[in-house]
């Protein structure tokens, strides 16, 4: 019975996040437009775009190899696999034992490498430029992420996502500066990983300022659809990760509990909507920074993670 509930939770979770991913992207776009006083595209527009792209005939560059064809599937699979491990509305999912933060970082790296290789495959100038920048920025974002993970590991004694979420939900930790710093660091990493303003502009059409989009210039048809889906899934993943760690309120406990699940789904949708709103407001309030300011930005996130761990030693030593 227990495993059945776990499996059911997992399937529901997958369905939920798959439905949420295009809505998150479309919702943020719509909110941003509304805040700027524009009408904005319909929130479901990304879904329509995906459906359209899937029907189109992909055109591969003559110089492209099988890497261009295989990488989109790998990228989407990595994002989806990582998202399957991050709890949304309930604990005790079938894949919960796999949900480790370091593993999630590894899966994200897998998706990133797949995308960088796809960008390099056709041998064009912009693809290589985007790949070089993406990998270089990740070189600083990854340690920042792991330092934030260190703070959780010190508090929870593990890097497992579920124990961390359960501990934070219990609330015995209180408010902690280190957690705040870890949150700031994670936010900066999330912004960089998802190619959002101020690090990158998801709506840019100027190749020289692109990071993420520059690698996808040669993709078309279903390959482009898969890349777009992967980036939507990654954005959903980061928002879900933030809400699973920092705002685990309302998450249903493990086991078969339809009412708790309903409440959990409601709470999760609410949290995700709030995070989308915050992201949209943030993006509207800030301008894109120069590419070579990005290392400084991410370096600051890294240092904040470091500071968080230091302050955690301070407070754990006091008790």
């Amino acid at each position: 019975m227990g495993w059945l509930a776990a499996l059911l939770t997992q399937i529901l979770h997958l369905a939920l996040v798959l439905a949420a991913a295009p809505l998150v992207v479309g919702g943020i776009r719509w909110l941003k437009a509304r805040m700027m006083g524009r009408q904005g595209p319909h929130p479901l527009q990304p879904l329509r775009d995906l459906a359209k792209l899937l029907r189109k005939r992909p055109v591969l560059a003559e110089t492209a190899s099988w890497v261009s064809r295989a990488a989109p599937y790998l990228g989407a699979a990595a994002a989806l696999a990582a998202l399957a491990l991050v709890p949304s509305f309930a604990r005790g999912m079938a894949f919960a034992p796999l949900g480790d933060l370091v593993v999630i970082a590894g899966l994200l790296a897998l998706g990133r490498v797949a995308m960088a290789l796809a960008g390099l495959d056709a041998g064009t100038a912009f693809g290589g430029l985007g790949a070089a920048r993406e990998m270089s920025f990740a070189a600083i974002a990854e340690p920042a992420f792991l330092l934030a993970v260190l703070s959780f590991a010190i508090l929870a004694g593990t890097t497992g996502l579920e124990p961390i979420g359960a501990l934070f939900q219990e609330g015995s930790l209180g408010l902690r500066v280190s957690l705040g710093l870890a949150l700031v660091a994670l936010l900066a990493v999330a912004v960089a990983e998802n190619a959002r303003i101020p690090v990158d502009n998801p709506a840019t059409h100027l190749e020289l300022t692109m990071v993420h989009e520059a690698m996808l210039l040669e993709a078309s048809g279903r390959h482009l659809a898969l890349w777009e889906a992967a980036s939507a899934l990654r954005l959903t993943l980061w928002l879900a990760l933030l809400s699973a760690i920092f705002f685990p309120f309302g998450t249903a406990p493990a086991g078969f509990a339809p009412l708790g699940w309903l409440l959990g789904i409601g709470a999760w949708v609410g949290k995700m909507a709030l995070l989308c709103l915050a992201l949209a407001a943030f993006e509207n309030a800030i301008a894109k920074m120069r590419v070579f300011r990005v290392p400084e930005f991410l370096g600051t996130a890294l240092l904040l993670g470091l500071l968080g761990a230091l302050l955690l030693f301070l407070s754990t030593r006091l008790a």
Binding site: S172, L173, G174, L175, R176, V177, S178, G180, L181, V184, E296, T300, L303, L304, L307, L311, S315, L318, A319
Partner: peptide, 28 residues
């Protein structure tokens, strides 16, 4: 007072925020 009690938490948080602003001063 220690973690989990509200007075401590808030004081801790505010102190940390003051320190964080010192970092912001250096970053800007």
């Amino acid at each position: 007072m220690s973690f989990g009690s509200l007075p401590y938490d808030i004081a801790h948080l505010l102190g940390g925020a003051v320190l964080l602003m010192s970092f912001v001063l250096l970053y800007q």
